[in-house]
Design a protein around this nucleic acid. Structure first.
Length: 533
RNA sequence: GGGUCCGUAGCUCAGUCAGGCUAGAGCGGCGGACUCUUAAUCCGUAGGCCGCGGGUUCAAUUCCCGUCGGACCCGCCA
């Protein structure tokens, strides 16, 4: 029932407070409280991957705000094996199934490996959002032996680990097999090996390359039997123990996770506590993002909605707003939601700068949310807020040759810009988003227009008049006169003209627009429709 | 079989660190105004057992339990 606002009044502030309280009660060192996120490297990053990052980072920011030093660890899973070739990538890649993603080539040829290519896409999105992190590559972590102690402890206590897995999810594999994938020294596969013995004296794991079935597909093993030194980096813990090792080795205190790996987290919590004797990090479970069809947005399915797609139409901050606005709840989303988030961000900005009045409690919360969207680095002053639809409409109607001038003029006359104010960087960016949007989703269609006899006559008259008229107001008048002279309601006639000229039922004031569009073009279009019908 | 989320106006949804006045917004609908129309504007208006049933409370859309409906995740592997 406390009415006191914690931090910035968001969910993240509350979470940070809980983390701090928990760490205090555990009596742990608080000089640096680390949060962690996983960085997928086996497929195209999707919106959900960024959700993990942005929420963890928000907790880091909240911790800092509560005077608790914190940093976000981005742990890149580039040691994982390729399990499925994502849609959009050549089927040739199938020959690499079962190999570590950092050891197979980049199909796009621009990075040193497949894993690097994929993870860099997500890192790029993080950078655009202003999310700061400390980067760890799994490959490097294994090569440098950062997890050595944990790997040893886990392998020595493999029986207990297997027991935990069995108790938690009923899977019995690990009561027989060690939770470790060795890279086969003969064929190089990662997922085809079964580790069956660990010798603590030599640090060596004995394995046999037997093959693995993934979704009904068999990746053949080569039958090789060998040994691998866990110090060599030629192998990794399976997921049902690797988290635990990471948490302890990197001293992680908070990690958010999607509900799809809830089981794995539960198991790792126990391994962390019972085998590694390290109290696992605080957790927050979030729901998955679904696309409009209600299907989980998956890295390998064809329906990838990547951060890069978002950035075509909306700002990084608007994407963070989507991520941070709500923590619970399955979100269904699609590209079509972007304008709404852009507008909502503007509205938050108005609240933040005191231009829009809301209740005190609500204002605190909304301002906090705004700050998180800007990762605590808000602009010094608000930008010009042009509603997304309006901008899309304007760029759609604008003649291509003088787009910026046309938009500037319109924004001035609507009062969004002062009389001699011009487009700033923010507005130019908004124009870019709107252009991409209209180009991809609102292509102007050639619509067939049926004309009545009166309309034909009116258009013919208008054509004559237009040929000698160059004043916008007079052209506007000519249109009204052409309508009235032929007993057509002006409203209806305008509608017809809009249909003919731009395929929409309404549009900008026509007089000036005819000139902006180029009078010859308009005349040609009118003549075309006359000769057609 | 285990678990999670959702259910609020015709539609899309706010209302989740914190239970509190008469439950909101946008779009749509309906009625009206404006003979010179810039997502057209302006005015007015209807529409809700907040899925259902219990519980806690002075007070529940909000918290708890149950239930129905919808969706998803796990039950291979990671």
């Amino acid at each position: 029932m406390s009415e006191e606002t914690i931090g910035h009044g968001t969910w993240y502030d509350m979470m940070a407070k809980k983390v701090i309280e928990r760490e205090r009660s555990l009596n742990r060192d608080m000089s640096k409280v680390r949060t962690e996120m996983g960085l997928g490297a086996s497929g195209f990053p999707h919106i959900g991957s960024l959700g993990d990052a942005s929420r963890s980072y928000a907790v880091t920011l909240a911790l800092k705000n509560l005077n608790c030093n914190s940093e976000l660890i981005a742990f890149c899973d580039d040691k994982d094996g390729l399990r499925k070739v994502p849609a959009g990538i050549s089927k040739d890649m199938e020959k690499y199934l079962g190999y570590s993603v950092s050891s197979i080539p980049d199909p796009f040829g621009c990075h040193e490996s497949y894993g690097k290519h994929m993870s860099s896409l997500l890192l790029d999105a993080l950078d655009k959002c202003g999310i700061e992190y400390k980067y760890y590559s799994a490959k490097q972590v294994y090569e440098e032996g950062l997890l050595l102690n944990e790997i040893r402890t886990i392998l020595i206590n493999a029986k207990k680990v297997g027991e935990i897995v069995k108790q938690e999810v009923g899977q019995e594999t690990y009561t027989e097999v060690l939770p470790f994938f060795a890279v086969c020294e003969k064929c190089g596969h990662l997922y085809t090996t079964r580790a069956y013995k660990f010798d603590p004296k030599t640090d060596k794991v004995s394995y046999k390359c037997e093959g693995l079935e993934i979704r009904g597909k068999l990746i053949a093993g080569c039958g090789h039997e060998g040994e691998v030194d866990i110090k060599s980096g030629e192998g990794k813990l399976t997921w049902k123990s690797e988290f635990a090792a990471r948490w302890k080795a990197l001293d992680i205190r908070f990690e958010a996770y999607g509900k799809d790996i809830a089981d794995s987290v539960r198991i790792n919590d126990r391994i962390c506590r019972e085998v590694l004797c390290f109290e696992p990090p605080s957790h927050a479970k979030y729901e998955m993002f679904l696309d409009k069809g209600g299907k989980k947005i998956s890295k390998s399915a064809g329906n990838v909605f990547t951060p890069q797609v978002w950035f075509n139409y909306g700002s990084p901050q608007s994407l963070l707003l989507l991520m941070l606005k709500r923590f619970v709840g399955t979100r269904t989303l699609g590209v079509s939601d972007i304008p709404a988030y852009m507008n909502e961000l503007d509205s938050l900005e108005e609240v933040y700068f005191g231009k829009k009045q809301v209740g005190e409690k609500e204002a605190t919360k909304l301002k906090g949310l705004y700050l998180y969207c800007y990762v605590m680095k808000p602009p010094a002053k608000p930008s010009v807020h042009v509603p997304y639809n309006l901008m899309a409409f304007l760029v759609k109607m604008a003649p291509k040759e003088c787009l910026n001038d046309y938009v500037t003029e319109k924004l001035q006359s609507y009062g969004y810009l002062q009389k001699n104010q011009t487009l700033d960087a923010n507005l130019l960016q908004r124009i870019k988003y709107a252009l991409n949007w209209t180009r991809d989703f609102e292509e102007i269609k050639e619509t067939e227009v049926e004309l009545t006899a009166e309309e034909k006559k009116a258009i013919a008259e208008l054509i004559t008049k237009l040929q000698t008229e160059d004043d916008p107001d007079k052209i506007q008048n000519a249109i009204f006169n052409a309508a009235k002279d032929n007993a057509i309601k002006p409203g209806a006639f305008f509608k017809t003209l809009y249909q003919v000229l731009m395929g929409a039922p309404q549009g900008p004031r026509l007089g000036p627009y005819v000139l902006a569009m180029g009078k010859q073009n308009v005349l040609a279009a009118l003549q075309r429709v006359l000769s057609k019908s």
